[in-house]
């Protein structure tokens, strides 16, 4: 394995269950040190794909490698950390004992084990509560313990299935910061999440799964097909001014309210929208607006959110599916 070996590589990987659900024909490459987000509605096949990669389910067809080792092999499993979507730990053990058990499975012993466990318990904010039995842990605490388990042994690839789903907003932020820190340390992150903010903040690239198929993949910008949209709130507006602005700037400028009536609404400020290439064009428009004697109350950028894109794409696909 060298630095050019992809961390995750699959070729037409499929896992189809008896009920026909699962994931189909997924070809994907994730580089070392890359943070990859896996999006999709419930039942899209995200967890099945991850379970196939970590060796919990056997592939129906296709193949996959983790750092050059076949998926499911002991060598591949030695290099991964996995936080399952359904995370539970033996409630008769303490948090520390759970970590010791997992460390033993990884062949980590003695001082090295104790040091790693202490560090990880602090890193996931469990600290001294590591001495409590798991049955006394809240769901969020168990998820933190799961994260610590996944990080044991300093794995190269981390598969995290909804890593902060049970946490409060503070916990979510802590997890997000931890993920960013792990990314800095060069870990490969494979993140299954419904939390768009996490994916948007942490991931370099992402894919969208729907009905078992991977329908889109790319960077956030590529997926959103980012077209910067600028909004201007202006007073003293007239339709002649709009025509002049369009002619002078050469940009597509529109009124946000399609029902604007100049006869009735001439005293109220209006919202204008313009599709622009960069902030320089926005500056030019600000200047032209003022040149026309209009009052500029506000000028701001409006970009599409990943969440809006996700909802639009998924509902659009659903509608096409229903029509089909």
């Amino acid at each position: 394995m060298n630095s050019l070996t992809p961390a995750i590589q699959t070729q037409s990987l499929s896992k189809i269950y008896d009920n026909g659900r699962g994931c189909r024909d997924i070809t994907l490459t994730v580089g070392q040190g890359e943070a990859f987000g896996f999006l999709g509605p419930n039942g899209a096949g995200k967890s099945t794909f991850v379970k196939t990669l970590v060796g919990l389910v056997s592939a129906s067809s296709g193949s996959g490698l983790l750092l050059g080792e076949p998926i499911g092999s002991l060598k591949a499993r030695a290099q991964i950390g996995y936080l399952p979507e359904l995370y539970r730990y033996p409630e008769w053990l303490t948090g520390e004992e759970v970590l010791k058990f997992h460390a033993g499975l990884l062949g980590i012993k003695g001082k090295e084990m104790n040091m790693q466990i202490r560090t990880l318990l602090d890193e996931v904010s469990i600290g001294k509560r590591g001495l409590d039995r798991v049955k006394q842990y809240s769901k969020g605490m168990q998820q933190r313990l799961g994260l610590a388990c996944a990080l044991l042994g300093n794995p190269q690839i981390l598969f995290l299935d909804e890593p902060s789903s049970a946490m409060d907003p503070v916990g979510r932020r802590e997890v997000r910061e931890l993920l960013l820190e792990l990314k800095k340390r060069g870990k490969t992150l494979f993140l299954n999440s419904h939390l768009m903010q996490d994916v948007e903040t942490v991931c370099d690239r992402m894919a969208l799964m729907l009905n078992g198929n991977m329908i889109r993949t790319g960077t956030v910008e590529e997926l959103l097909q980012v077209q910067v949209r600028w909004r201007f709130k202006v007073g003293g507006f007239s339709t002649q001014s709009l025509e002049w602005l369009r002619a002078e700037s050469g940009l597509n400028i529109t009124l946000e309210d399609p029902n604007y009536n100049p006869a009735q609404d001439w005293e109220s400020p209006v919202w204008l929208q313009a599709e622009i290439a960069d902030e320089n064009q926005a500056g030019l428009l600000n200047m032209l607006i003022m040149e026309q004697g209009m009052t500029l109350y506000e000028s701001s950028m409006q970009s599409e959110k990943l969440e809006d894109w996700f909802v639009d794409t998924v509902s659009g696909q659903d509608q096409r599916g229903e029509r089909g």
Binding site: L74, Y82, Y87, L106, G146
Partner: peptide, 14 residues
């Protein structure tokens, strides 16, 4: 069913 086994079986243990 509880989710205990999943994290164990992904370890390098046959």
């Amino acid at each position: 069913e509880q989710g205990i086994l999943q994290s164990v079986l992904t370890r390098p243990l046959p």
